[in-house]
Nucleic acid binder design. Sequence first.
DNA 1: TCGGTGATGCAAATCGATTTGCATCACGAC
DNA 2: GTCGTGATGCAAATCGATTTGCATCACCGA
Lengths: 362, 362
Amino acid sequence: MARARISDVAAAAGVSVTTVSLVMNDVESRISEETRQRVREAARAVGYAPSSVARGLRTQRTRTVGLISDQIATTPFAGRMLAGAQDAARDAGHLVYLLDTGGDAAIEREAIDALTAQQVDAMIYACMWHRVVDVPQGVLPKTVLLDCRPVNGGYRSVVPDDRAGGAAAVRELVAAGHRRIAYLDTDDPGPIASRLRHEGYLEALAEAGIPADPALHITGETSAHGGRAAAEALLDLPDDERPTGIFCFNDRMAAGVYIAAHRRGLDIPRDLSVVGYDDQQLIAAEQDPPLTTVALPHYAMGRWAMEVALGVRAEGDEDATHLMECPVIRRDSVGPPPAQVAKPNRRRASHTERPPRAAPDR
Amino acid sequence: MARARISDVAAAAGVSVTTVSLVMNDVESRISEETRQRVREAARAVGYAPSSVARGLRTQRTRTVGLISDQIATTPFAGRMLAGAQDAARDAGHLVYLLDTGGDAAIEREAIDALTAQQVDAMIYACMWHRVVDVPQGVLPKTVLLDCRPVNGGYRSVVPDDRAGGAAAVRELVAAGHRRIAYLDTDDPGPIASRLRHEGYLEALAEAGIPADPALHITGETSAHGGRAAAEALLDLPDDERPTGIFCFNDRMAAGVYIAAHRRGLDIPRDLSVVGYDDQQLIAAEQDPPLTTVALPHYAMGRWAMEVALGVRAEGDEDATHLMECPVIRRDSVGPPPAQVAKPNRRRASHTERPPRAAPDR
DNA sequence: TCGGTGATGCAAATCGATTTGCATCACGAC
DNA sequence: GTCGTGATGCAAATCGATTTGCATCACCGA
């Protein structure tokens, strides 16, 4: 059977469509309670549900949001961000259009045009990893950027606080007593996160009074394979230069460190501590032992972006980047550094086998 | 500035809105070429783009599709399925609403109602892993099921051919010369894929004339940890009962087999061959050596579902389950079984160190 | 009796497109 | 001259809601 229209309800209740509309939308008591009951009953009886399309045309508000993203498809990250955005949209009574452009500019154009034609109330422009983007023409002026920042400002955006996250990761190692801490970085110059996490690394080192050793900043291909190769180089260092803790750009590379360590009979965390980044479920939690890492707050970012886009969350500044905290997820890959013979020529030698867990000197 | 309406174009071109509509929709030559030009020019000049909302109201076709899924968020699988559905929708000029219900029935209801109110042209009901579902009331009659089959029929659906996939995986081992092949299964009775892959395992064994040994069908928790524990039990078997090849329910469990093997100094594939399932990028490709596995055809399934839902692909049967082939992805975890001393009491002893890669006896 | 005042409900305009007749015109045939 | 016919374009109805302004009625006070 065809959908019930508002006029069907009106006929069934013996009132005008105006009355039905007023009742269904709970407009302030212009209608007597008795009539309201009758209308509601009739609506139920004919199975009436208002057409969002007709309403959208009349009110010029569609209660829909467009989420344009570059690569939902290929990264396991996407999910949590979508989930956050999605949940926030549902809470606000909105539906979301998902448009994955694959990073193709032509498709992006097309997507924006389609969303404009659909008269979405808001748009979110999402990236699958933290980067700087040139927001394409045609998006709604109040578009919110998710996991990316605009090259020229002009948009509100939310990104992970990679600097603080990097610092937190390193502090985790410092607190366990490590002083020779390596940063196993990606060799890909693309990710802005790489630089930020490095800054955090240096910051945490500095606040612990540990001089940064450039030899301990090493790069490799962004994969388990690359991580393994880089770790190998690190572990080949002479005893007193070899790091006791490694902070990795991401969990995949950390998985490579595990392989390198196990290949040479090193136990994690007894002989080597490692901290990852990203908290990729399928990697971090499944390592043996489970990997201590820093989580990307994807769900929270997705939520934030949607709330701001829909005006649920009032953000004072129209043109500011919101930094979202990256919590460290403590698992079992960090322990105290292995005891070792004090070297007379080291600036500070570690004599405690089990140093206090609190941050040392500072 | 406000959106340009069709009447603005009409005014600018000095014609009626009818004419503009006719021209914009390329209706058969009722309008002279000269007028067409004028209209097109005017449309461009005022920056006209038709309102999908108004058109949807008038035509009662919105060119939108609702994709309801249980858990887009938590699984890295989702992406490819979404991408496939998405691409097919774009090709057909449709937009997709993504609704993740988290498996919650109340939210599912809400989602269906919202989509109905939006008057979507089609619906897809997707699951994140192959299972049997009770499709909720209220979905469009022609809804297509993606990665799940309806408990009572009545819907078109597409699922991976797990049986054939399981057989293909085992044939891979048989072809390499293995005859003691274990199936490391999940202990979770939920996934229908578990049973189907087991059937495929038995089928491939049978066609190779290898008697199935129940001791080689072992189960474990669905994780690297569980896979490792189960593999340990398998590797503890006496030499002549120990499997030389292990087919795992999924890549995560296969990763556990790697750990168990490496822990006891076994080299893959020299001492042990392993085949996974799922082809999870972050796991399979990143193992050392890279894991040979069977891929779930997520992209193709997503595409299929969308094409059928939109009527782009004509599927004869209104009520049938389409099986999608799972291709095996050859990497480096399968080799010939290790040479071993012939046991006088074995039914067949392997004497060839490097058996031919073609399927043996049958 | 008449006008004023709430309370209640309705007719009609509107949102921006599509689509169905119908009107107009030029031209040629009779 | 008039009629038919093809070519071209338009007026108006329609989709299903929201919303403004007006109508009606009951009741009350002067």
